[in-house]
Amino acid sequence: MRALLVANPKATTTSERTRDVIVRALRSEVDLSVEYTHRRGHAVALARQAAQERFDVVVTLGGDGTVNEAVNGLMSALPATDQPATATAERLPALAVVPVGSTNVFARAVGLPPQWPEATSVLIEGLRTGRFRTIGLGRADDRYFTFCAGLGLDAAVIRQVERARLRGRRSTVGLYLRSMVSEYFIGMDRRHPAIRLEQPGEPAHEELATVVIQNTAPWTFIGDRAINPNPLASFDLGLDVLAVRQLRVPSTTRTLAQVAARTPDPRGRQVVRLHDLSEFTISATRPQAFQLDGDYLGERLKVRFTAVREALRVVH
């Protein structure tokens, strides 16, 4: 079995010694090649090349951003005519993930342990026994995502966090919480909701303040605790949406408490929840912060979302 390891040397919890241990462990099971990413977007090119060269597996060593790039590289290796709402997973290398990022949402969502030693052991056993799971992906315009997307408040928070990290700050729960409070009270226009969601054949949802899209649950983790705005989201279904109409303090506080509950069930007059959608479009009257899989991608006025079912095989 031929495998390519795509390693992000800047991943939060990795080191040269860690990488060496993981490489030796994987080489005990597969014919392994190793490539290191040198810039944002590099993993896309490396994974695409691996698919074109007919590798059996692409292994990512990094966080959710590295996983997202590798997935986009794999999917882009399909001919354009083969990238509709359903893809043929068997035509692509399988994906394996060694989690060494700060949160590792995707790895944990597919059932891997959050720590790299245990996850590596599970992956080696999965490679040895051929244990694969086929999952669906989300697609936002021409870019794929594995677990979440967002326009509005959550993306604006990620934007603030990424700017802080460029200044040398560590990515911590406290940094995210402070960024959320700052963006909510100072950064965004809460008085004039600007977002519209349209589905084929359904009435539009208008004057939305923020939208969270999930391809699986959970949306993220705070420590060991899963956070689930859309608790019914699944890799085996379409996309789920939680939108909030007005970000008033009382209703927003109530919604956040519902989302963070051990049995989440967000509801209320300000909440819109949609389950198992195949496609929809989000537009806005002014540019909105936009994120995929926890990476800030700038501002958007319009994004078309599509569920791509049975898109990719994952070692687990």
Rank of each mutant, 00 (worst) to 15 (best):
E162S: 10
M188D: 10
S102C: 11
L153D: 06
R163A: 13
P193Y: 03
A149I: 00
A209R: 00
G187L: 05
G187I: 02
I213Q: 10
A217H: 06
V122E: 04
L127S: 06
R163V: 06
G168S: 01
R178T: 01
L112F: 09
A155W: 04
P203G: 05
R170C: 01
V122C: 05
L166M: 04
M188T: 06
V105N: 01
G126L: 11
G201P: 15
I186K: 15
A149H: 07
V211H: 14
Q115S: 12
P203Q: 10
E207R: 09
D154A: 13
L123E: 00
A164Y: 01
L175S: 09
E198Q: 15
G126A: 11
G130Y: 07
R143T: 05
W116M: 03
V212F: 11
E118R: 03
T220A: 14
T210S: 15
R163E: 08
Q199E: 15
V157T: 02
L177C: 06
V105F: 03
L112W: 03
H205E: 15
R128L: 07
R143E: 14
R159H: 14
S102G: 14
R163G: 07
T146C: 12
T216F: 03
Q214R: 09
E183K: 04
A149Q: 09
A149V: 01
E207N: 09
V122P: 00
A194H: 07
E202W: 09
L208W: 03
R169D: 13
V211I: 06
V173S: 15
E183S: 12
I213M: 11
Q199G: 11
L175E: 12
G187Q: 09
L151T: 00
L153M: 14
F147L: 05
T172M: 07
R169W: 13
G138S: 13
G152K: 03
G152M: 09
R159T: 01
G111L: 14
G111E: 08
R169H: 14
L153V: 00
P200M: 13
E183W: 03
I195Q: 05
R133K: 14
G150R: 07
I124F: 08
R190T: 04
L177Q: 14
F132Y: 11
V161Y: 08
T216Q: 03
W116T: 00
W219H: 15
L153I: 01
R196K: 12
E202V: 08
M180C: 09
A155L: 04
I158M: 13
Q199Y: 06
L127C: 07
D142Q: 15
F221H: 07
L197R: 07
P193G: 07
Q160I: 02
R131A: 14
V157H: 08
R133F: 11
A149T: 00
V122M: 10
Y176H: 14
L153T: 01
L208R: 02
R163I: 06
D154C: 08
P114N: 08
A217K: 06
L175Y: 11
I222E: 13
P113D: 04
E125G: 15
D154L: 05
S102R: 12
L153E: 08
Y184N: 03
A209Q: 06
R169S: 13
L197P: 09
